[in-house]
Design a protein around this nucleic acid. Structure first.
Lengths: 338, 338
DNA sequence: AACGGTGATGTTAACGTTAACAAGCTGTCA
DNA sequence: TGACAGCTTGTTAACGTTAACATCACCGTT
């Protein structure tokens, strides 16, 4: 025979019935040790492996979690994915991937989710950076637990949320600058269609008004190029140069540093710069970038752990992870004479 | 009833037998247009979706490709994954993820692969940066096509390889430096246990000896920190400072730039620096980094396309993608007086 | 000695699909 | 007219597993 051995084959080899084999495999208690040993020997001998597809069909448990990735701009996606995969493996789950490029027409999202449920995944994690996606999601009921990773703020009874507190992160960054004595703190935002960019703007704004400080806001898109361009704009604007810049993320901060270097503006002497993410190598920019660290692997892990609990019957919940300010050398007090 | 409708339900609704429904769904030619329409209406009405698990069980075609990720140091993994997912989707395949942290004990790798075949994936792509993994792989036969992504050079009749030509990339980088007039070109390598680091060393070495030039070689590990440390070592060594540094990747180049800035060594005036990868933002380092671009998405796409063809019966093959030198501002001719 | 309970094993029937074969219907040609 | 081809549709039987129920032996109890 060519096809891999099944329970029947093992059963024949061990001189028992196939159901006994099933029981051995699933660790069912009522199997005589001796029988168990015989079955296990047969399994060894034949190199039997359980057919997980048949198992999924019969038991309606696929042991698979679907992961949908919506925006591909997510720079730190791999770290999330790694956390997801690790946690899933640990919990005995598979990870099935489904990304969606381009803009989120709601129907298209639904189609992706359905493709996933067609596979009978037991739960779905949606990594989404756009509020639109979350709204689309909150409407439909798929019959499986869904957790949204990264975005928050759209409470829905059936959806779980796992996110790093972006607003808090922004506040930490801005407060750090305020503490250093800055009163004019510009914010070069990420793409405002994304959730995190908005939350960071909110945090920046809130902290600024709380301290009666001020600062310009220019919209970028998370790319280094946009940071570069906006920093130049800022400089070109002339007179009231901010003494500190809060960039939408580290990529943008890179662009800012590049632009300021081009203009001969010294960081942090003339202008302080703060990023967001703590991307790989952020500590080796020149100067080493002060930034807000997000633990992406943790994010992914939490999402899966939450989903596993939801599969077990627990209700949806919202989880906010706490970002951490990492102070390096791109921030300092404002120049005395300005 | 609570469970989703099956073919039987659709068949009843349309007044045909379930097998006709199957034929409609699979686009079988011999179904009368009128019948087809009736079935399609029933499908619409009931919101029927094919159960892909049952399909996989019966037809032994799961439409799933397994992706194993071995090293997690792969900085550019997400781009590969994106290419993989996109191509897979296009070809009508699912992507099932399985990463393996830590060092590659061969048995462990086998276990991961088997977990994948247990799911009856139709093909497996292994993203591996270590030669060890490839060797382990070349031994065993899993019964499904396997393609190795990233690593190359271990020809095996059953394995396909898709890689960016690392050696060529290194040669492009070094030749560029040679063309500029550099004769002393140091190489700060990536982790030498990885395949690409080794190939880059080879390329650097080959090009150097071909031009009777020279240069020191220091081993790093692809991290910015190692680049930083090694660049300092290089400077501390004293007298015969190289006029150019070829870093193992862009991260290391970042570290190099940081270290040189600290030492007051001007790039590119005093020393030229070349990286590898063309990571996001490489153009916004100070100075903008000359580097070798690898098209990772293309890599992922090629791997999947190759696997799909292999599923269709084509033999294994090796594919090398060509990297491209991106010249920016971190390279220039050596200082006249040195 | 008969009874009920428990623990170990087996029998049967799904899960929802597709493959293989069978059968009916239509139309054409000898 | 009958037969054969071709198109359409249906019947039956898997695929490999698990759930539900059935069976049987064995033990302690009354």
């Amino acid at each position: 025979m060519d096809r891999p051995p099944g329970m029947m084959d093992v059963a024949r080899e061990a001189g028992v019935s196939h159901i006994t084999v099933s029981r051995v495999i699933n660790g069912h208690p009522s199997v005589r040790p001796e029988t168990r040993a015989r079955v296990e020997a047969a399994i060894q001998k034949l190199g039997y492996r359980r057919n997980s597809v048949a198992r999924a069909l019969k038991s309606r448990r696929s042991s698979t979690i679907g992961v949908v990735i919506v925006g591909s701009e997510l720079f730190e996606l791999p770290r999330i994915l790694l956390g997801v995969e690790t946690a899933a493996k640990q919990a005995g789950y598979w990870v099935s991937l489904a990304s969606r490029q381009g803009e989120s027409s709601t129907g298209d999202l639904l189609e992706t989710l359905q493709r996933l449920t067609d596979q009978s995944v037991e739960a779905i994690a949606v990594v989404a950076d756009r509020p639109g996606t979350v709204e689309a999601l909150s409407g439909l009921s798929l019959g499986v637990p869904v957790a949204v990773v990264m975005s928050g703020n759209v409470p829905s009874p059936d959806l779980s949320f796992v996110e790093v507190d972006q607003e808090l992160g922004a506040r930490l960054a801005v407060r750090h600058l305020l503490d250093l004595g800055h009163r004019n703190i510009a914010h070069l935002t990420g793409a405002l269609r994304t959730f995190d960019a908005r939350a960071r703007v909110d945090g920046w704004q809130a902290e600024l008004t709380a301290s009666a400080a001020q600062g310009a806001r220019l919209e970028g898109d998370f790319s280094a190029e946009s940071g570069f361009r906006l920093a130049h704009e800022l400089c070109a604007a002339g007179s009231d140069l901010p003494t500190a810049v809060f960039a939408g993320n580290d990529q943008m901060a890179m662009g800012v540093l590049a632009a300021l270097a081009e203009r001969g503006v010294k960081v942090p002497h003339d202008v302080s710069v703060v990023g967001f993410d703590d991307m790989k190598g952020a500590g080796y920019l020149v100067p080493a970038l002060t930034t807000v660290r997000q633990d992406f692997a943790h994010l992914g892990r939490s999402a899966i752990e939450l989903l596993v609990r939801m599969v077990g019957g627990e209700p949806a919940q919202q989880q906010k992870l706490t970002p951490r300010l990492v102070v390096r050398h791109s921030t300092a007090g404002p120049r005395a004479g300005s």
